[in-house]
């Protein structure tokens, strides 16, 4: 398995995440998609780290940061989802359209 393979795998993961973001109606489905995309980015970082860059520690640190940020993002997103659910009795994206038109 070479660099290109990893990059393609990451791309496929990213595309699946994007697809999930675009099609899921449940808000948590969107969150799942976002997590997948973040992980795809992480794979890219580590792959480049492994194959191209001479100093592998930096890539690992970046991935660690990504994981930390993802955790923060998930926390906020989940609380927003809960809050929205309480306000609308629904966690459906299509129901959150008060600003339309």
């Amino acid at each position: 398995m070479t660099l290109s393979h990893f990059l393609l795998v990451a791309l496929a993961l990213f595309a699946l995440g994007l697809y999930s973001v675009l099609t899921r109606r449940h808000l948590i489905g969107l969150l799942i998609g976002v997590e997948l995309m973040l992980n795809a980015a992480s794979i890219n970082f580590l792959a480049f780290d492994r194959f191209v860059v001479k100093d592998p520690a930096t890539g690992q640190i970046i991935v660690l940061f990504i994981i930390g940020l993802a955790a923060a993002e998930a926390a906020i997103a989940l609380s927003i989802i809960l809050s929205a659910y309480r306000a609308h009795r629904s966690a459906d994206v299509d129901d959150l359209d008060e600003l339309k038109n």
Partner: peptide, 8 residues
């Protein structure tokens, strides 16, 4: 009308 409220 373009602002359909459809996030996706």
């Amino acid at each position: 009308r373009m602002q359909s409220g459809r996030l996706q």
